[in-house]
Design a protein around this nucleic acid. Structure first.
Lengths: 349, 349
DNA sequence: ATGAAAGCGCTAACAT
DNA sequence: ATGTTAGCGCTTTCAT
């Protein structure tokens, strides 16, 4: 293996100069630097990250923590974060929590404390108080994307407002019987589905529509669960909604498929809307709210690297940053066909 | 930060003993070890991976290289590899090549050589000769999953045979006009689609069915591209197939949706089959070939860690291991309805 | 079975 | 601007 001393010798300078030339820290004469770079390149020298990390305290790597991998949103954020990190010369160490409780414990107690990375990006993480303690104990900058963690800098989208926006869109089209396919009783304290539900109910209230518990179903953010929830909603003729809002596009797609199977046309007989702007949304003509995961990933990296560079920790709730989103109207939503006044004063959840 | 010396002091032993007690290398008295472990635990001591890595030459991390992330197969392998690695005490450093050519170059020339990991797992990687050279130059064990790389230990599934199996299934049901939705003109030398196509053609030949180029379309492994390819195949009444075999489940699902839109029932009017056993396959009742990505990921980790432990490099083509797969027959395939002898001697591609 | 001591390959004062 | 030197926090011979 070619080491820094080999480069130093070949370039006729000291080890320290090579280090400076390659890292850009400290001063080096322009031509010296060029020369060293050329020699290093020629020899195929690459700094050892362990040695460099030990000596400098910086590892040029960041850890990315995700709840699981087989979800479009997480991988989209992850992919863009990786791109941004590679561009900045950083490695990405992945911590996927989807492997079961014991592994999750290992990660929080062991792996995160190994000092392998300079900071973390936590995607949609919902954590126990104990885990929060562990996270703080690591003493490294952390940027959260979604799932706000007490005391940590969070980059979030306004889940309630996204929901309100879609529901509002449906209500504005004239729908009064708008069903919800919300998030399941999910993990831990996974609050995102609750926020989305709250936004939905807010929009209803703003339009003077009573909240009807019978119009609320839940799913697991998959096409299949959306299909099943929609089937339940649509086969009960007595309360058939004219619109369904699913809190994720995958569930919304499931709802569209269910409608088709029941002989309902979208949007003529049923409007459907979701959240995400999933890659399938365009294909299905699904009206949705784009939340730009790629840009969230890139922005998270930017925030984290800034913290790492400036050493200015933003450790309080004020440090929260919010991310833009947009309603994307496609062909799955339209005014309801029969515009006979909606039934009012229905039973409330 | 609590270091090894703190533990040594608190436990009343030397640094060396603590190191041995925690790593399990070298001999330590049973009770000493227990005591040290307890003290370390109590102090919340975790070894610094940089320091340990520098001193020992082992980093307890492996790099996983993937072509991109937003594909079910890759993330499924990745997720199971991560679980296996965490269980073995290894970190996972991710290298996603989907970020564009320049980043790809960075990864091969720079990142892989930083010595941050002890070995690599390369998933479905198709590489240029230059990249192969770079990979070898790293001098670390590499296990490939799919996409065999010259001179590297590869764990692969027999793509041609999987295809042959599905096509055979369709032919056995009596289909003679079996269309193919193959892989696009993809990346680099991405040979998997070609192998799958070869298996399809082999099965046809084995059943005395002429290969008809007009029955072959290609897609990009997405639902949408499968939909489009199937639409092309099905709207040309003169050559309408009675069965479609898509080389991935996502494309097969697209084909099922296209059939529905054209008023064709599956499997009565059209049989459809895929490859993968994607999470959607069950939902759509899709006949497919399962290739168990989770078990591939786990097995790859096992192979790699063995190499790391035994230091017995398996550097030759013989080192190839193959992975099981199974035909899963669901409700998307059935005998063709009209069994009037198939048109023979049609034009060949 | 344990301890003492010499690095692992680099960075960062400090000196020049 | 460059060189000298003392570590970074561990692991691992080598003694004992």
């Amino acid at each position: 293996m070619v080491g820094i001393d080999d480069v130093a010798r070949a370039a006729g300078v000291s080890r320290a100069t090579v280090s400076r030339a390659l890292s850009g820290r400290g001063s080096v004469a322009g031509r010296t630097q060029k020369h060293v770079l050329a020699v290093a390149q020629q020899l195929g020298y690459v700094v050892s990250s362990t040695a460099s990390g030990l000596a400098s305290g910086r590892s040029r790597a960041v850890g990315v923590i995700v709840p699981l991998l087989n979800r479009w949103f997480y991988t989209a954020v992850l992919e863009s974060a990786q791109n941004a990190l590679i561009s900045a010369g950083y490695d990405l160490t992945l911590y996927n929590l989807g492997g079961g409780a014991d592994r999750r414990g290992n990660v929080f107690e062991e792996f995160l404390h190994r000092g392998r990375v300079d900071g973390f990006i936590a995607i949609s993480l919902e954590v126990t108080p104990e885990e929060v303690r562990s996270l703080h104990a690591v003493g490294k900058p952390i940027v959260c994307v979604g799932g706000p963690i007490p005391g940590l800098h969070t980059l979030s989208v306004d889940d309630a407002e996204m929901s309100r926006l879609v529901t509002e869109h449906l209500a504005s089209l004239g729908h009064r019987r708008i069903a919800l396919i919300g998030g399941g009783p999910g993990e831990k304290d996974f609050r995102m589905p609750l926020k989305r539900k709250a936004g939905y109910e807010l929009a209803l209230k703003q339009h003077g529509i009573d909240v009807d518990g019978a119009l609320q179903e839940t799913g697991y953010f998959t096409i299949q669960s959306g299909f099943e929830a929609a089937t339940r909603l649509l086969t009960n003729a007595s309360l058939r909604p004219t619109a369904i809002f699913a809190v994720s596009d995958e569930m919304a797609v499931g709802a569209m498929l269910a409608a088709r199977d029941l002989g309902l046309r979208v949007p003529e007989d049923l409007s459907v809307a979701g959240i995400d702007d999933h890659e399938l949304a365009g294909f299905f003509g699904l009206t949705t709210v784009a939340q730009y995961p790629a840009s969230q990933g890139a922005r998270a990296v930017e925030l984290l690297l800034n913290e790492l560079a400036g050493d200015e920790r933003v450790e309080d709730e004020e440090g929260n940053t919010s991310h833009p989103f947009d309603l994307i109207v496609r062909s799955s939503t339209a005014p309801p066909r029969v515009t006979n006044g909606p039934p009012r004063n229905r039973s409330v959840a």
